Simulated assay, not measured.
Amino acid sequence: MVSGINASTKRWVVGITGASGAIYGVTLCRQLLNAGFHLHLVVSEAGWRVLKEELGWNVTNRLECINKAFDSAQAEGRMTYHPLGDIGASIASGSFRCEGMAIVPCSMGSLSAIANGASTNLLTRAADVMLKEGRPLLLVPRETPLNAIHLENMLKLARLGVRIIPAMPAFYNGPQTLDDVVDFIVGKTMDGMGIEHNLYRRWGHPNE
């Protein structure tokens, strides 16, 4: 549930890259669709590989795969899938109105490209648009261990106002399943997006 706004008029851009943790991005997309947002999705080539390897998706027909994974949201007009190479897509322009963008998970390669202004594909161009237009940009990096280059790139983006939300699960909420762990990370991402949810129990609220 989204509080205080008409979600049906709101758009979020979501990017899924080749870092491990594709389930985070898929779960976030489903949550946004369930909340009534219009979703604009772009997936990197490595992201498609991870969707295949980690979730068992048949990615031969990508549009068909998207419709199957998200209950025909694309066919019903609740979602727009943008191919990575479509640099002329709506989300590549600052005139496109949206609430912001989340890249979940975000590989170190994509993070580096964004930090250094290398808009070589639609995903990194859309992120660059968020920066130049002053819109929210949230990254969920997933890598371990981190080297100095990774840390410096994240610090650079954080200083520009980008929300860095590492995929670091908490355990105070007593997770019992892998879904609980995933929901915590997605919930923290949605907190950063300003979207209400009930994906995890908050500290100090044992009955919620």
Rank of each mutant, 00 (worst) to 15 (best):
I5Y: 09
S8N: 11
S8G: 06
K10W: 12
V14G: 05
T17H: 05
T17R: 03
G21P: 07
I23V: 13
Y24Q: 02
T27D: 15
L28I: 10
L33N: 06
G36A: 09
F37T: 08
F37K: 01
H38I: 13
L41D: 11
V42S: 08
V43S: 10
S44E: 07
E45Q: 12
G47K: 00
L51Y: 04
K52W: 07
E54Q: 01
E54C: 08
N58D: 15
T60G: 12
T60P: 05
I66H: 05
K68M: 13
D71K: 06
A75V: 06
A75L: 14
G77W: 03
M79T: 08
H82A: 05
P83C: 13
I87R: 10
I87M: 14
G88L: 15
A92P: 02
S93V: 13
F96V: 10
R97L: 14
R97G: 15
C98T: 10
C98I: 03
G100C: 09
M101C: 09
A102N: 01
V104W: 01
M108C: 06
A113T: 07
I114R: 01
A115Y: 00
G117S: 02
A118Q: 14
L123V: 06
T124P: 02
A126Y: 02
A127S: 11
D128N: 14
M130T: 09
K132I: 12
P141S: 07
P141M: 05
L146E: 00
N147E: 00
I149C: 01
I149Q: 00
L151Q: 06
L151D: 02
M154H: 06
L155W: 02
K156F: 05
L157Q: 04
A158Y: 01
R159N: 13
R159M: 12
G161C: 09
R163L: 15
I164G: 14
P166E: 06
M168Q: 11
G174L: 14
G174I: 04
P175C: 02
P175A: 04
G187Y: 06
T189A: 04
D191K: 02
G192Y: 01
G194A: 10
H197A: 05
N198Q: 10
Y200H: 09
W203L: 14
W203K: 11
W203Q: 15
P206C: 08
P206L: 05
